[in-house]
Nucleic acid binder design. Structure first.
Length: 150
DNA sequence: GCCAACGTTGGC
DNA sequence: GCCAACGTTGGC
């Protein structure tokens, strides 16, 4: 079992929305390294931190679970989608998505500010300088440490 | 809105 | 393959 962190802009898909619909295709990843994590790393049952980015208080707000392995992201073929990619071919899709299911909200937001100063995390991908990936690996130790301060 | 830190594109 | 120009992310 692996652990991950997924970034979502709450304007697009918030933890409240995921709690309501219970399950969502995680579409819109348009970065090759992030796609490779989806494709090569994610397994059914992997646990995921749900992170709110590009908002007033960025931070981890909930937990979810991988419930479907990587498959072609349908939005790349949809001309009306913001994520349409005219260069991607149906017989050789460039972009993938997984499905995630809501697990629970955290009792409080563990903010980016707090994560930056939290000890015991070691080399944490989220707070690494310059990192902008929307899909990040989390070690088991980091997962436990972060949940311990909830 | 600003801007640092990337990633991508395309001319050469 | 190099690299300048451009686009994007996302904290602040």
């Amino acid at each position: 079992m692996k652990h991950w962190l997924l970034k979502s802009e709450p304007d697009e898909c918030s933890i409240e929305q995921l709690a309501r619909v219970r399950r969502e295709p995680w579409t819109g990843v348009r970065n090759y390294q992030a796609r490779n994590y989806l494709r090569d790393g994610m397994q059914l049952g992997d646990e995921v931190f749900f992170y709110h980015s590009n908002c007033a208080t960025p931070g981890i707000v909930g937990l979810c679970t991988v419930v479907r392995l990587a498959y072609p992201d349908p939005t790349q073929f949809d001309p009306d989608s913001d994520y349409f990619d005219a260069a991607s071919r149906r017989d050789d899709p460039r972009w993938l998505c997984v499905d995630v299911a809501f697990a629970r909200r955290l009792r409080r937001t563990i903010t980016l500010q707090e994560l930056k100063t939290l000890d015991g995390l070691g080399d944490f991908a989220l707070t690494r300088r310059g990192n902008r990936l929307s899909v990040l690996p989390v070690t088991a130790a980091q997962w436990q440490r972060i949940l311990s301060v909830e």
